[in-house]
């Protein structure tokens, strides 16, 4: 299933629902890179509220997506990381250094607008 990339005002919102397969994750990375270069948003929100489980590969891709967006000059905010997911990420050594995070989507939007 392809993950939709939505445009709200001048931000891109990626809301990941349920478990993320390896192919879907890679596809998202490609699509997002393309959309960023075409639509030139000011910010990207990656919402993980509905993600309960991540494995090492998906965690790596998520981290890559964030760093990639940052590299392309847009502000990235990762929102709604669940406690269990946060613990997994830390244990895998992925701290998303330099990437902003917010408790939920609303706060993420506020962060981008600030």
């Amino acid at each position: 299933m392809e993950i939709p990339i939505l445009k709200i005002d001048n931000c891109l919102v990626v809301s990941i629902q349920g478990s993320l397969t390896d192919t879907a994750a890679l596809e998202l990375q490609e699509n997002l890179a393309r959309d960023i270069s075409q639509q030139e948003p000011v910010g990207v929100l990656v919402d993980l509220t509905a993600v309960e489980i991540v494995d090492s590969f998906v965690a790596k891709v998520l981290s890559d997506i964030s760093s990639m967006s940052k590299l392309m000059g847009v502000n990235v905010v990762v929102t709604g990381i669940q406690p269990g997911v946060a613990i997994t990420l830390i244990e895998l050594g992925i701290t998303l250094e330099g990437i902003r995070t917010a408790l939920n989507l609303q706060k993420g939007i506020d962060l981008l607008r600030a």
């Binding site: 990381i81 946060a86 990420l89 830390i90 701290t95 995070t101 408790l103 993420g108």
Partner: peptide, 12 residues
Amino acid sequence: LNAASAARLLGS
């Protein structure tokens, strides 16, 4: 540090 990093991931 882990506690701090994990809290940061959640947005605090």
